[in-house]
C-alpha cells in the first residue's frame, strides 16, 4: 500500500498556465489613514513607568490588607504605619542623615572599585600576563562573599569607614572587571580594523573605539557592581553597626529593631529599596537612554 502512494507522489505535477496581467496600483494618498494615533488608554499601557507604578500600588494594597488582618504591629506593621514612621524619620532628620553617611561610603568604595577595575582590564586587554592575572584573580575572589571579608577588614582597618570601603571595593571590583573585559573581547574585528585604518592605536584606540563599542557590557557591569555594593554596604552596617558615632542606614534598621520599633525598621528597609529603585530606574535608565539605546546597541 505504502509503495503505491509513493509512486503516485512521484508523478510529475505541472502547474496550469494562466493568463498574465498588469494592474494599476492605488496611490497611497487615496487609501485613507495609513497610520492612526493610538487611544489614550493604549498609550498609557505602553508607558513603562505607568505599568510599574501600578504594580507598586498593588503591592501596597496587598500589604495594607494583610497587615490589618494580622493586626500585630510588633511583627508586621501596616503600610500606613510604616509611611508615618518614614515621615517622622525624615522630619526628625535622622533618616536623611543616616542615608547621607551610607551614600558617602558607597560612592567612595564604588569609585575606587571602578578605577581599580579599569586598571586591571586595561592590563588584561594589552598584555597576556594581564589577562591571566585578571582571570585568576576573578576566579578566586568573585565567588567570595564580601561580608566574609568583613572580620578581616575590621582587623586591618578597625571599626570605621575604611573597613566598609574595603568591603565595597571587593564587591564591585570583580563583577565590573569581568564585564568590562568580556565587553572588550566581544568588539567586532571589523570595528577594530576600521579604527586602526583611522590611525588609532594604544590608549587612544581603547578610549575612542573599545570603550564605546563595549559600552553595553560595561554598563551591565556598572549595574551589577552597584547592586552588589549597595547590598554589601547595608549588610555590613547591620553586622558591625556604628562607627565613631556615625551610623548609616543599616545601623538605623538595627537600632530600631533593638527598641522593637518595627515600623521604623520597615521605614529603613523602604528607604534602602527606594534608593535602589531610584538608582536603577532613574540614573541608570537615563544613562541607557542617552547611550546604548540611542545607538541601537540595546532594545528599549
Amino acid at each position: 500500500m505504502v509503495e503505491i502512494t509513493m509512486t503516485e507522489i512521484s508523478v510529475k505535477l505541472t502547474p496550469p498556465i494562466r493568463p498574465e496581467g498588469e494592474y494599476d496600483v492605488t496611490p497611497p494618498g487615496t487609501l485613507g489613514d495609513v497610520a492612526k494615533p493610538l487611544s489614550l488608554l493604549e498609550r498609557l499601557a505602553n508607558t513603562t513607568s505607568v505599568r510599574r507604578g501600578l504594580i507598586l500600588v498593588g503591592i501596597a494594597v496587598v500589604w495594607q490588607a494583610y497587615a490589618t488582618w494580622l493586626s500585630n504591629p510588633l511583627s508586621f506593621p501596616t503600610f500606613t504605619e510604616t509611611l508615618s514612621a518614614l515621615r517622622d524619620g525624615i522630619a526628625s532628620g535622622v533618616i536623611p542623615q543616616r542615608l547621607w553617611v551610607t551614600l558617602q561610603t558607597l560612592v567612595m568604595g564604588y569609585a575606587i572599585g571602578l578605577v581599580i577595575a579599569a586598571v586591571f582590564t586595561s592590563l588584561a586587554v594589552t598584555t597576556r600576563l594581564g589577562t591571566d592575572l585578571l582571570s585568576t584573580l576573578t576566579a578566586m575572589f568573585n565567588p567570595l562573599p564580601a561580608i566574609a571579608l568583613l572580620p578581616l577588614a575590621l582587623l586591618w582597618f578597625g571599626l570605621g569607614r575604611p573597613s566598609l570601603v574595603f568591603v565595597i571595593i571587593h564587591s564591585v571590583l570583580w563583577a565590573v572587571a569581568l564585564n568590562m573585559h568580556s565587553g572588550f573581547l566581544s568588539v567586532s574585528e571589523t570595528l577594530r580594523m576600521a579604527g586602526r585604518t583611522f590611525g588609532l592605536s594604544g590608549f587612544r584606540f581603547v578610549r575612542k573605539i573599545l570603550i564605546p563599542a563595549a559600552f553595553p557590557a560595561i554598563l551591565a557591569g556598572l549595574k551589577i557592581g552597584w547592586a552588589f555594593a549597595w547590598r554589601t554596604l547595608i549588610a555590613a552596617e547591620l553586622v558591625f553597626g556604628v562607627s565613631s558615632g556615625q551610623g548609616g542606614l543599616g545601623w538605623y534598621i538595627f537600632e530600631n529593631r533593638n527598641t522593637l520599633d518595627t515600623a521604623a525598621v520597615f521605614a529603613g528597609l523602604l528607604t534602602v529599596m527606594a534608593v535602589g529603585l531610584f538608582v536603577e530606574g532613574v540614573i541608570f535608565r537615563a544613562i541607557e537612554a542617552r547611550t546604548v539605546r540611542r545607538w541601537g546597541m540595546q532594545r528599549g
Binding site: S188, T190, L191, M193, A194, I209, P212, A213, F215, T291, W295, G296, M297
Partner: peptide, 11 residues
C-alpha cells in the same frame, strides 16, 4: 571599506 555593515561606529 569593509564588507560588513558593522564597520560604522554605532555611537
Amino acid at each position: 571599506v569593509f564588507q560588513e555593515f558593522d564597520q560604522l561606529l554605532p555611537w
